[in-house]
Design a binder for these strands. Structure first.
Lengths: 142, 142
DNA sequence: GCTTGACTCTCCAGTGGCTGGAGACCTTAA
DNA sequence: TTAAGGTCTCCAGCCACTGGAGAGTCAAGC
Protein backbone atom coordinates (compact mmCIF):
# COMPACT_ATOMS: atom_id res chain seq x y z
CA UNK A 1 0.00 0.00 0.00
CA UNK A 2 1.68 3.14 -1.28
CA UNK A 3 1.06 6.76 -0.43
CA UNK A 4 0.11 9.04 -3.29
CA UNK A 5 3.64 10.16 -4.14
CA UNK A 6 4.81 6.60 -4.68
CA UNK A 7 1.68 5.83 -6.68
CA UNK A 8 2.48 8.87 -8.79
CA UNK A 9 6.00 7.62 -9.49
CA UNK A 10 4.84 4.12 -10.35
CA UNK A 11 1.98 5.27 -12.56
CA UNK A 12 3.83 8.23 -14.07
CA UNK A 13 0.90 10.49 -13.27
CA UNK A 14 1.10 13.76 -11.33
CA UNK A 15 0.01 13.63 -7.70
CA UNK A 16 -2.57 16.30 -8.45
CA UNK A 17 -4.09 14.20 -11.20
CA UNK A 18 -4.36 11.16 -8.95
CA UNK A 19 -6.11 13.23 -6.29
CA UNK A 20 -8.40 14.55 -8.99
CA UNK A 21 -9.24 11.03 -10.13
CA UNK A 22 -10.12 10.18 -6.54
CA UNK A 23 -12.26 13.30 -6.20
CA UNK A 24 -14.30 12.52 -9.31
CA UNK A 25 -14.65 8.89 -8.31
CA UNK A 26 -12.64 7.48 -11.21
CA UNK A 27 -10.04 5.67 -9.14
CA UNK A 28 -10.42 5.67 -5.37
CA UNK A 29 -7.57 4.43 -3.19
CA UNK A 30 -8.21 1.07 -1.58
CA UNK A 31 -7.54 2.45 1.89
CA UNK A 32 -6.66 5.46 4.00
CA UNK A 33 -4.12 5.72 6.79
CA UNK A 34 -5.18 6.74 10.29
CA UNK A 35 -4.22 10.31 9.46
CA UNK A 36 -6.21 10.33 6.25
CA UNK A 37 -3.42 9.68 3.75
CA UNK A 38 -4.52 7.92 0.58
CA UNK A 39 -3.09 4.40 0.28
CA UNK A 40 -2.93 2.81 -3.15
CA UNK A 41 -2.74 -0.95 -3.73
CA UNK A 42 -0.87 -2.48 -6.65
CA UNK A 43 -4.24 -3.04 -8.29
CA UNK A 44 -5.06 0.65 -7.89
CA UNK A 45 -1.76 1.55 -9.48
CA UNK A 46 -2.49 -0.79 -12.38
CA UNK A 47 -5.74 1.09 -12.86
CA UNK A 48 -3.90 4.41 -12.80
CA UNK A 49 -1.54 3.17 -15.49
CA UNK A 50 -4.49 1.84 -17.48
CA UNK A 51 -6.23 5.21 -17.33
CA UNK A 52 -3.05 7.04 -18.26
CA UNK A 53 -2.76 4.95 -21.40
CA UNK A 54 -6.40 5.40 -22.27
CA UNK A 55 -6.16 9.18 -21.77
CA UNK A 56 -3.04 9.31 -23.93
CA UNK A 57 -5.20 8.06 -26.78
CA UNK A 58 -7.52 11.01 -26.30
CA UNK A 59 -10.45 9.18 -24.71
CA UNK A 60 -12.58 11.24 -22.33
CA UNK A 61 -12.75 10.58 -18.62
CA UNK A 62 -16.26 9.22 -19.12
CA UNK A 63 -14.96 6.70 -21.63
CA UNK A 64 -12.18 5.87 -19.18
CA UNK A 65 -14.91 4.96 -16.72
CA UNK A 66 -16.49 2.63 -19.26
CA UNK A 67 -13.19 1.04 -20.22
CA UNK A 68 -12.20 0.70 -16.57
CA UNK A 69 -15.48 -1.12 -15.91
CA UNK A 70 -14.70 -3.47 -18.77
CA UNK A 71 -11.11 -3.86 -17.55
CA UNK A 72 -12.42 -4.89 -14.15
CA UNK A 73 -15.21 -7.10 -15.43
CA UNK A 74 -14.17 -10.70 -16.15
CA UNK A 75 -17.42 -11.24 -18.02
CA UNK A 76 -16.80 -8.43 -20.50
CA UNK A 77 -16.96 -9.16 -24.19
CA UNK A 78 -14.24 -7.98 -26.53
CA UNK A 79 -17.08 -6.74 -28.73
CA UNK A 80 -17.88 -3.97 -26.25
CA UNK A 81 -14.29 -2.85 -26.13
CA UNK A 82 -13.91 -2.94 -29.86
CA UNK A 83 -17.04 -0.84 -30.34
CA UNK A 84 -15.66 1.93 -28.15
CA UNK A 85 -12.39 1.91 -30.02
CA UNK A 86 -14.10 1.82 -33.40
CA UNK A 87 -16.10 4.91 -32.51
CA UNK A 88 -12.92 6.69 -31.44
CA UNK A 89 -11.23 5.69 -34.67
CA UNK A 90 -13.97 7.38 -36.66
CA UNK A 91 -13.57 10.52 -34.55
CA UNK A 92 -9.81 10.54 -35.04
CA UNK A 93 -10.18 10.04 -38.77
CA UNK A 94 -12.57 12.97 -38.98
CA UNK A 95 -10.20 15.17 -37.02
CA UNK A 96 -7.25 14.20 -39.17
CA UNK A 97 -9.22 15.00 -42.30
CA UNK A 98 -10.30 18.36 -40.88
CA UNK A 99 -6.77 19.24 -39.82
CA UNK A 100 -5.39 18.28 -43.22
CA UNK A 101 -7.86 20.66 -44.81
CA UNK A 102 -6.82 23.42 -42.43
CA UNK A 103 -3.21 22.64 -43.14
CA UNK A 104 -3.57 22.63 -46.90
CA UNK A 105 -5.50 25.87 -46.99
CA UNK A 106 -3.04 27.59 -44.68
CA UNK A 107 -0.07 26.19 -46.58
CA UNK A 108 -1.47 27.48 -49.86
CA UNK A 109 -2.01 30.92 -48.33
CA UNK A 110 1.50 30.95 -46.87
CA UNK A 111 2.90 29.89 -50.22
CA UNK A 112 1.11 32.73 -51.98
CA UNK A 113 2.31 35.28 -49.43
CA UNK A 114 5.50 37.07 -50.35
CA UNK A 115 6.54 37.43 -46.74
CA UNK A 116 8.40 40.66 -47.36
CA UNK A 117 8.29 44.23 -46.10
CA UNK A 118 5.11 45.16 -47.99
CA UNK A 119 1.70 45.10 -46.31
CA UNK A 120 -0.10 43.22 -49.12
CA UNK A 121 -0.92 39.78 -47.84
CA UNK A 122 -3.24 37.12 -49.24
CA UNK A 123 -3.53 35.59 -45.76
CA UNK A 124 -5.02 38.75 -44.28
CA UNK A 125 -7.20 39.11 -47.36
CA UNK A 126 -8.50 35.59 -46.97
CA UNK A 127 -9.37 36.09 -43.31
CA UNK A 128 -11.04 39.40 -44.17
CA UNK A 129 -13.17 38.14 -47.01
CA UNK A 130 -16.86 37.46 -46.49
CA UNK A 131 -16.51 34.37 -48.65
CA UNK A 132 -13.78 32.65 -46.70
CA UNK A 133 -15.19 29.50 -45.23
CA UNK A 134 -13.75 27.15 -42.71
CA UNK A 135 -12.51 24.55 -45.17
CA UNK A 136 -13.39 21.68 -42.89
CA UNK A 137 -16.70 23.02 -41.64
CA UNK A 138 -15.63 22.16 -38.15
CA UNK A 139 -13.22 23.58 -35.68
CA UNK A 140 -9.90 22.06 -35.00
CA UNK A 141 -9.85 19.83 -31.95
CA UNK A 142 -13.45 20.52 -31.02
CA UNK B 1 -24.68 50.97 -36.33
CA UNK B 2 -26.16 47.60 -35.46
CA UNK B 3 -27.18 46.19 -32.11
CA UNK B 4 -25.55 42.96 -31.04
CA UNK B 5 -28.18 40.64 -32.51
CA UNK B 6 -27.75 42.07 -35.98
CA UNK B 7 -23.97 41.98 -35.62
CA UNK B 8 -24.34 38.33 -34.67
CA UNK B 9 -26.35 37.56 -37.81
CA UNK B 10 -23.94 39.41 -40.07
CA UNK B 11 -20.82 37.90 -38.54
CA UNK B 12 -22.31 34.45 -37.98
CA UNK B 13 -21.09 34.48 -34.39
CA UNK B 14 -23.27 33.84 -31.33
CA UNK B 15 -24.36 36.91 -29.38
CA UNK B 16 -22.69 35.46 -26.30
CA UNK B 17 -19.38 35.16 -28.10
CA UNK B 18 -19.52 38.76 -29.29
CA UNK B 19 -20.22 39.95 -25.75
CA UNK B 20 -17.31 37.82 -24.59
CA UNK B 21 -15.00 39.40 -27.19
CA UNK B 22 -16.05 42.80 -25.89
CA UNK B 23 -15.45 41.74 -22.30
CA UNK B 24 -11.92 40.52 -22.98
CA UNK B 25 -11.16 43.59 -25.07
CA UNK B 26 -10.71 41.75 -28.36
CA UNK B 27 -13.39 43.64 -30.29
CA UNK B 28 -15.15 46.52 -28.57
CA UNK B 29 -18.22 48.07 -30.18
CA UNK B 30 -17.64 51.50 -31.65
CA UNK B 31 -20.46 53.02 -29.61
CA UNK B 32 -23.17 52.46 -27.04
CA UNK B 33 -26.77 53.62 -27.10
CA UNK B 34 -28.13 55.87 -24.37
CA UNK B 35 -29.48 52.81 -22.62
CA UNK B 36 -26.15 50.99 -22.81
CA UNK B 37 -26.81 48.78 -25.82
CA UNK B 38 -23.70 47.83 -27.77
CA UNK B 39 -23.63 49.35 -31.26
CA UNK B 40 -21.41 47.77 -33.89
CA UNK B 41 -20.17 49.59 -36.99
CA UNK B 42 -19.59 47.82 -40.30
CA UNK B 43 -15.88 47.96 -39.53
CA UNK B 44 -16.54 46.20 -36.20
CA UNK B 45 -18.52 43.54 -37.99
CA UNK B 46 -15.67 43.04 -40.47
CA UNK B 47 -13.39 42.46 -37.49
CA UNK B 48 -15.83 39.95 -36.03
CA UNK B 49 -15.86 38.05 -39.31
CA UNK B 50 -12.07 38.24 -39.46
CA UNK B 51 -11.75 36.79 -35.99
CA UNK B 52 -14.28 34.06 -36.75
CA UNK B 53 -12.18 32.96 -39.70
CA UNK B 54 -8.96 33.08 -37.73
CA UNK B 55 -10.53 31.08 -34.89
CA UNK B 56 -11.83 28.50 -37.35
CA UNK B 57 -8.21 27.80 -38.21
CA UNK B 58 -7.50 27.01 -34.59
CA UNK B 59 -5.55 30.13 -33.70
CA UNK B 60 -5.77 31.24 -30.07
CA UNK B 61 -7.47 34.43 -28.97
CA UNK B 62 -4.05 35.89 -28.25
CA UNK B 63 -2.97 35.22 -31.80
CA UNK B 64 -6.25 36.75 -32.96
CA UNK B 65 -5.19 39.89 -31.16
CA UNK B 66 -1.88 39.90 -33.01
CA UNK B 67 -3.50 39.22 -36.38
CA UNK B 68 -6.17 41.84 -35.71
CA UNK B 69 -3.44 44.37 -34.98
CA UNK B 70 -1.80 43.50 -38.28
CA UNK B 71 -5.17 43.60 -40.04
CA UNK B 72 -5.70 47.11 -38.74
CA UNK B 73 -2.17 48.32 -39.34
CA UNK B 74 -1.54 49.72 -42.83
CA UNK B 75 2.20 49.59 -42.16
CA UNK B 76 2.24 45.88 -41.42
CA UNK B 77 4.61 43.65 -43.33
CA UNK B 78 3.39 40.44 -44.90
CA UNK B 79 6.47 38.86 -43.33
CA UNK B 80 4.95 39.23 -39.85
CA UNK B 81 1.73 37.59 -40.97
CA UNK B 82 3.52 34.79 -42.74
CA UNK B 83 5.62 34.05 -39.66
CA UNK B 84 2.54 33.56 -37.51
CA UNK B 85 0.99 31.25 -40.08
CA UNK B 86 4.22 29.32 -40.55
CA UNK B 87 4.40 28.65 -36.83
CA UNK B 88 0.82 27.42 -36.84
CA UNK B 89 1.54 25.18 -39.80
CA UNK B 90 4.31 23.48 -37.86
CA UNK B 91 1.93 22.95 -34.95
CA UNK B 92 -0.76 21.51 -37.18
CA UNK B 93 1.74 19.19 -38.87
CA UNK B 94 2.88 17.91 -35.49
CA UNK B 95 -0.69 17.29 -34.40
CA UNK B 96 -1.55 15.48 -37.60
CA UNK B 97 1.51 13.26 -37.19
CA UNK B 98 0.59 12.52 -33.58
CA UNK B 99 -3.00 11.73 -34.46
CA UNK B 100 -1.94 9.46 -37.28
CA UNK B 101 0.19 7.52 -34.82
CA UNK B 102 -2.73 7.24 -32.42
CA UNK B 103 -4.95 6.17 -35.25
CA UNK B 104 -2.60 3.53 -36.57
CA UNK B 105 -1.95 2.02 -33.18
CA UNK B 106 -5.64 1.94 -32.33
CA UNK B 107 -6.52 0.56 -35.74
CA UNK B 108 -4.00 -2.23 -35.34
CA UNK B 109 -5.39 -3.09 -31.91
CA UNK B 110 -8.95 -3.05 -33.24
CA UNK B 111 -7.91 -5.25 -36.11
CA UNK B 112 -6.36 -7.77 -33.74
CA UNK B 113 -9.44 -7.82 -31.51
CA UNK B 114 -11.95 -10.55 -32.30
CA UNK B 115 -14.85 -8.40 -31.19
CA UNK B 116 -16.88 -11.36 -30.08
CA UNK B 117 -18.50 -12.60 -26.87
CA UNK B 118 -15.25 -13.64 -25.21
CA UNK B 119 -13.48 -11.40 -22.71
CA UNK B 120 -9.99 -11.78 -24.23
CA UNK B 121 -9.06 -8.49 -25.80
CA UNK B 122 -5.71 -7.21 -27.06
CA UNK B 123 -6.96 -3.63 -26.62
CA UNK B 124 -7.51 -4.05 -22.90
CA UNK B 125 -4.21 -5.90 -22.67
CA UNK B 126 -2.40 -3.07 -24.38
CA UNK B 127 -3.88 -0.44 -22.07
CA UNK B 128 -3.03 -2.63 -19.07
CA UNK B 129 0.56 -3.31 -19.97
CA UNK B 130 3.36 -1.45 -18.23
CA UNK B 131 5.17 -1.23 -21.55
CA UNK B 132 2.42 0.48 -23.51
CA UNK B 133 3.63 3.91 -24.46
CA UNK B 134 1.78 6.78 -26.00
CA UNK B 135 2.96 6.21 -29.56
CA UNK B 136 3.22 9.93 -30.24
CA UNK B 137 4.69 10.96 -26.90
CA UNK B 138 2.15 13.73 -26.76
CA UNK B 139 -1.51 13.98 -26.05
CA UNK B 140 -4.07 14.44 -28.74
CA UNK B 141 -5.12 18.04 -29.24
CA UNK B 142 -3.16 19.33 -26.31
C1' DG C 1 -51.94 53.94 -23.74
C1' DC C 2 -51.25 49.06 -23.02
C1' DT C 3 -49.79 44.65 -23.79
C1' DT C 4 -46.97 41.30 -25.77
C1' DG C 5 -42.93 39.36 -27.36
C1' DA C 6 -38.44 39.90 -28.79
C1' DC C 7 -34.23 41.88 -27.66
C1' DT C 8 -30.63 43.45 -24.57
C1' DC C 9 -28.29 44.12 -20.26
C1' DT C 10 -25.31 42.32 -16.20
C1' DC C 11 -23.93 38.81 -13.21
C1' DC C 12 -22.99 34.19 -11.85
C1' DA C 13 -22.04 29.36 -12.66
C1' DG C 14 -20.55 25.54 -15.40
C1' DT C 15 -17.84 22.99 -19.07
C1' DG C 16 -13.11 19.36 -19.16
C1' DG C 17 -9.30 17.99 -17.15
C1' DC C 18 -6.50 19.33 -14.81
C1' DT C 19 -2.80 22.78 -12.41
C1' DG C 20 -1.07 26.06 -8.92
C1' DG C 21 -0.88 27.90 -4.50
C1' DA C 22 -1.99 28.71 0.48
C1' DG C 23 -1.88 27.09 4.93
C1' DA C 24 -2.02 23.31 8.00
C1' DC C 25 -0.72 18.82 9.42
C1' DC C 26 2.37 14.60 9.38
C1' DT C 27 6.59 11.83 8.90
C1' DT C 28 11.32 10.81 8.77
C1' DA C 29 16.25 11.50 9.02
C1' DA C 30 20.19 13.92 10.84
C1' DT D 1 15.04 19.11 17.95
C1' DT D 2 14.84 20.82 13.88
C1' DA D 3 14.46 20.81 9.10
C1' DA D 4 12.93 19.05 4.89
C1' DG D 5 9.75 16.94 2.41
C1' DG D 6 5.29 14.68 1.92
C1' DT D 7 0.35 14.99 2.38
C1' DC D 8 -4.07 17.04 3.40
C1' DT D 9 -8.12 20.26 2.04
C1' DC D 10 -9.82 24.20 -0.12
C1' DC D 11 -9.95 27.75 -3.44
C1' DA D 12 -8.74 29.89 -7.83
C1' DG D 13 -7.40 29.78 -12.57
C1' DC D 14 -6.74 27.95 -17.29
C1' DC D 15 -9.33 28.35 -22.33
C1' DA D 16 -13.10 29.97 -24.93
C1' DC D 17 -17.00 30.04 -24.42
C1' DT D 18 -22.22 28.63 -22.99
C1' DG D 19 -26.42 28.71 -20.20
C1' DG D 20 -29.56 30.79 -17.24
C1' DA D 21 -31.67 34.20 -14.01
C1' DG D 22 -33.73 38.44 -13.48
C1' DA D 23 -34.28 43.07 -14.92
C1' DG D 24 -34.67 46.64 -18.24
C1' DT D 25 -35.84 48.23 -23.23
C1' DC D 26 -37.95 48.47 -27.75
C1' DA D 27 -41.34 48.02 -31.52
C1' DA D 28 -45.69 46.44 -33.27
C1' DG D 29 -50.44 45.73 -32.90
C1' DC D 30 -54.81 46.71 -30.60
Amino acid sequence: MDPIGTAAQKSELPVKTIRYYDEIGLIKPQAHSEKGYRLYSERDIQKLIFVRHVREFGFSIDTCRDLLDLYENPHRTSKEVKQIVAKKLVEIQAKIRAMKQLHDTLARLAHDCHGDQRPDCPIIEYFSSDQAVDPSHQKECS
